[in-house]
């Protein structure tokens, strides 16, 4: 049989991992979770401080809870389930470049998260009727989802209980320690996203970390670092 080196099979890997993520239960669960952001944003329109309520709905619940937890759920399982079920062997032992696997996993995770997180949280930003919030929300959520997904795809390869470790990170680090002040907030993905939204809502970010160039650069750096780590991990891994 003639063997060639055609285009890298990134599309096939992406389609496989994407289809594995699209389960009815997961879509409904995450869809409901995302839709609650819209409900909270609607309710916030009746609050005394509309901008603060909008920040709470979009940056607090939408980004801090929906985006973070959906990302940890989806991204850790993209490769984590393959490891857990012993299916990674079917990809890992092929001649395909191994860096394609985490890239495809990141793309698949982001596709799912765009549907169940980005869309409802952006709608939530729109219903608050705060000027400029939609664009800032789209940017902040996209950057945060990319960073979270990359981090959690790598985490899924590194730990058997990646989902739980991810949840612990979200709950303890992102939602408690990072809120202590701008010092710890510098090591929090959520803080950078929230600072972008807070600036658009013209309110003080709850972590005290103000929007700056770092708010855009750090999530991108984390995304790249996560992919590099995942690729190195795959290269050195012992597969069941």
């Amino acid at each position: 049989m003639r063997l060639t080196r055609p285009r890298p099979p990134i599309k096939e890997l992406y389609r496989l991992l994407w289809r594995m993520q699209i389960t009815r239960g997961r879509l409904i669960g995450l869809g409901v979770l995302g839709s609650i952001t819209i409900l909270i944003a609607l309710l916030g329109r009746g609050a005394d401080d509309v901008n603060d309520a909008a920040l709470g709905a979009v940056a607090g619940y939408g980004l801090g809870v929906v985006a973070a937890i959906s990302a940890v759920w989806v991204a850790t399982s993209t490769l984590g389930n393959l490891v857990e079920d012993g299916l990674l062997v079917y990809l890992w032992t092929k001649p395909t470049d191994r860096w394609l696997i985490p890239i495809a996993a990141l793309a698949a995770s982001l596709s799912v998260l765009a549907m169940v997180v980005l869309v409802p949280v952006s709608i939530a930003a729109a219903v608050t009727e705060v000027d400029g919030l939609v664009t800032a929300t789209i940017a902040a959520v996209t950057l945060s989802l990319a960073a979270y997904s990359s981090l959690f795809v790598a985490l899924g390869l590194a730990f058997r209980r990646a989902l739980w470790w991810g949840l612990a990170y979200i709950l303890i680090w992102e939602n408690v320690i990072a809120r202590v002040g701008s010092g710890t907030a510098r090591f929090s993905i959520l803080s950078y996203g929230q600072s972008i939204i807070a600036r658009a809502a013209d309110t003080e970010p709850r972590t005290g970390l103000r929007s700056s160039a770092a708010s855009w650069i750090v999530p991108i750096v984390v995304t790249v670092a996560g992919m590099v780590f995942a690729t190195r991990r795959l290269d050195r891994a012992e597969i069941d």
Partner: peptide
């Protein structure tokens, strides 16, 4: 291990393997 890709049909699974093996 017995596990297989639950989202795929037999033809899709084997085609994926062929594609990853870079068959034309």
């Amino acid at each position: 291990q017995e596990a297989v890709f639950e989202a795929l049909t037999a033809l899709e699974f084997v085609t994926l393997s062929a594609r990853l093996s870079e068959l034309d």
